[in-house]
Amino acid sequence: MDASTAFAPPAGGGRNLHRFANPGRFLRASGRVLPWLAAAGLLLTGIGLLWGLFFAPADWQQGDAVRIMYIHVPAAWLASGGYFALALASLASLVWRHPLADLAAAEIGPVGAAATALCLGTGSLWGKPMWGAWWVWDARLTSVLVLFFLYLGHIALVRAFDDPQRGARAGSILALVGVVNLPIIKFSVDWWNTLHQPATITLTGAPTMYVGMLWPLLFSALGFSFGFAALVVARMRAAVMERRIRALLSARARAEAA
């Protein structure tokens, strides 16, 4: 297996997405984008969190504990959004056999799991002083815990096979099955009685949040998203290079043996 054929697009697959199947092209394009993603992530997250921590007003009931929201809510959005990206990559891998989709899925998993862990941890730290409990088994909290286990299962599954192709295939199926959980997370607070409050920001009405709190939240959420993308792109670049190193080394070993 040669380094370049390892990434060669499938015959007849001259689609747009397959342009980036070429590892050199992906490395060049992602290398140009990565610094900007990372800078935007750092800057916007910094503005959002400092604003939320020191300048946004305290809530009339929650007091300063409302400031945990500036981490919890973006982490929760990214936990679900990251899983959606994982499912899209899995679909591209399963249906179109896009060679970068497997890599993307394998690298989104750990970052998404980290966002979910951050969401669960900060939620717990908010729940204790506000609700009076670190954890309750209501539909929202339980479905997000299931999301965390889906991420962990995906991380383990894609790395469990000697043949990475089979791992990617199994992981894709798990990721797509787990998509059922996303609407359950989103609508759990509307469909059932939960301790967790319903959504503040909806498509149908004005956000039930004061603008002075909404702005830092939006900055933080945007910054988290750029940071998430930067981490995934950096990890994918590393994975592409690692795959190329393995291919070059095995090609060299075979040449020496011959």
Binding site: M69, P198, T208
Partner: peptide, 11 residues
């Protein structure tokens, strides 16, 4: 346990 509603309002 106290249930919080979805409003965020300064004092």
């Amino acid at each position: 346990l106290a249930k919080h509603d979805e409003t965020y309002m300064p004092k």
